[in-house]
Nucleic acid binder design. Structure first.
Lengths: 210, 210
DNA sequence: TAGGCCTACATACTTTAGTATGGGGTTTTG
DNA sequence: CAAAACCCCATACTAAAGTATGTAGGCCTA
């Protein structure tokens, strides 16, 4: 059995075999780390339980059982006060906000060089929060905050968009004027950071809003 | 300098730092492989040129300069008769078809375990074609349904629609005229039974085409 | 080789979508 | 209370999307 005394015990959960294999291999070469891996949330949770908590836990955002950041909450509860971070191939400000709100120790893009990852893990291990710089820039660029929540009307309009309806149809079915619909569509796009209705539907779907 | 005599010379081009780092590390532990890496297509092409060709080349599908499978063709020409394969995180039947049509030696999902990747590389090195089984299954399944009807071009345009691009943008990125894109969009809608581009994206997603 | 499909482009046109203003009115909240 | 956020509508405009037709070459196949 490997000696883990004094090492940072890292748990990585990811259903991408290649990434998992290769990440654990690289981090395993670090003298101060000991890596454990699982391929789904349940595996991660039971690993945390039986191990009595890991020093750092990385959870893939898209992973069997995760369901967005739902699994994150459960993992954080189990892992006591030790950091739990989100691992994702498609880092967005939305995922960042959600994750941090739920108490994640950071967000790790899979596009990050392996060496940087090792540094980020040590960073989180000492209680810091790690977030990629470019996402912070996006956050700053989006001026005010509150980008997350759509109003009630906007949600219903978004649903219509998600059915491929055009403005006039939406106006009819909601008993509103076309001008009003246009207004709502516009603010939906602004809030979602989309360029047009099609893009809005895409991003809404990606974020589980639809 | 490392001794490469007798080894399979592998070139991997990918702009995902983590994957690149960790892949080359794992494959480097294989006694019969020697790995070189680049982070964009231009780097890959010049590496191939100066090296006189690699035994196996892996190109990331989404990568600066690639533009779908356009870069694949150039790489194949440069690499003589040696295998060039596509590396992608989101393997789809569309990408498979396109790649094989252009003469790729295979399609390697990033979700593949690292050990399997090593095997796949050896497989391609001896002249075989590697494709993931599950994609072949998709192929069989889709053939039965009514939606395998989109032509190659239509599929690439559909992907662009799925990114919320507008006609002009698609035309630019595909080096086509806006009129041509409109034509493709129209026939996509007709084949999918959609009323407009947004609707087309929705139904395409629902049917797993995106 | 003729008919079919795919690809590509152009031109002209109509309809939708999106933007920019303006005007009202509610409810929520600091 | 007053600011902020929501909700509704209107007009007028620009940009984009969608429709319709015609031309044309390549490829495959019956």
């Amino acid at each position: 059995m490997t000696d883990t005394s004094g090492k940072i015990r890292v748990l990585i959960a990811d259903d991408h075999g290649m990434i998992l294999d290769v990440l654990s291999m690289f981090l395993g070469t670090q003298p101060d780390m000991h890596v454990t891996t699982t391929t789904d949330l349940d595996g991660a949770l039971s690993a945390i339980t039986s191990n009595g908590g890991y020093d750092v836990v990385l959870l893939d955002y898209n992973m069997p059982g995760m369901n967005g950041t739902q699994g994150l909450t459960r993992a954080i509860q189990l892992n006591k006060k030790n950091p739990v971070a989100i691992l994702t191939g498609t880092p967005t400000k939305r995922i960042l906000d959600e994750s941090l709100a739920k108490g994640a120790a950071g967000l790790v893009p899979k596009t990050m060089p392996a060496k940087s990852l090792a540094i980020a893990i040590r960073f989180m291990h000492v209680g810091e929060t790690y977030v990629p710089l470019d996402l912070m820039r996006e956050e700053a660029a989006e001026a005010g905050e509150g980008v997350g929540k759509l109003s009630a009307r906007e949600k219903t309009v978004l649903e219509c968009l998600g059915e491929g309806k055009q403005n006039k149809e939406i106006a009819n079915s909601l008993q509103l004027s076309e001008a009003t619909i246009k207004m709502h569509v516009k603010s939906i796009c602004k809030k979602l950071g989309a360029n047009n209705r099609t893009h809005a539907v895409i991003t809404a779907r990606d974020q589980g809003l639809l």
